[in-house]
């Protein structure tokens, strides 16, 4: 019973995430890149697009309320325990990985959530990006196994 509820909860959360991305405009690579294009505003070539800041602000606020509530609960509704990251170090893999991710994000206007969600649109560029992303993830898996 709990297993079925857990599957259903994951499906509902995933669907809510995908609907939120769709409504927010963040599936649109031009809009995302427009947010990252801060120099465009300075030289007046094109207006800076602040939408991403509204999306992030709305998301962090609501998630923050949920997490504050979670801290008061002994355990999640359908699982034995909260599964939280324990690594608190700000180290070179964290910064180097985030820097590499930012380059790819800036080049394409795509990050993992919107890219995976947009697979349902059937757009070829999305499929190509996601395929390359999976290869990148597998490459890291090998790299990490050797290191």
């Amino acid at each position: 019973m709990t297993t079925a509820l857990r599957l259903l909860a994951a499906l509902a959360a995933g669907l809510t995430f995908g609907l939120g991305l769709s409504l927010s405009g963040m599936l649109d690579p031009a809009r995302v890149q427009g947010f990252l294009d801060v120099t465009g505003a300075f030289d007046g070539r094109e207006a800076w697009d602040p939408t991403l800041a509204f999306v992030l602000g709305g998301a962090v606020s609501v998630a923050g309320l949920g997490y504050a509530l979670a801290r008061r609960l002994p355990r999640p509704a359908f699982a034995p325990a909260f599964d939280l990251p324990t690594n608190r170090r700000i180290d070179r893999p964290l910064i180097g990985g985030a820097a590499l991710f930012g380059i790819g994000w800036g080049l394409s206007g795509l990050c993992p959530g919107p890219a995976v969600a947009a697979l349902s649109t059937g757009a070829l560029p999305v499929a190509v990006f996601v395929a390359a992303m999976l290869v990148g993830m597998m490459a890291h898996h090998r790299f990490a196994a050797r290191a």
Partner: peptide, 29 residues
């Protein structure tokens, strides 16, 4: 939802590789 792509397929491959490798190395996106 509106999608306006800003890069051609070769750039998307490079970007995808960087996003995949980078998000795993940096533990998140």
């Amino acid at each position: 939802p509106t999608m306006r792509f800003v890069a051609g397929l070769p750039i998307l491959v490079v970007a995808g590789l960087l996003v995949g490798f980078g998000t795993r190395l940096g533990s998140g996106c």
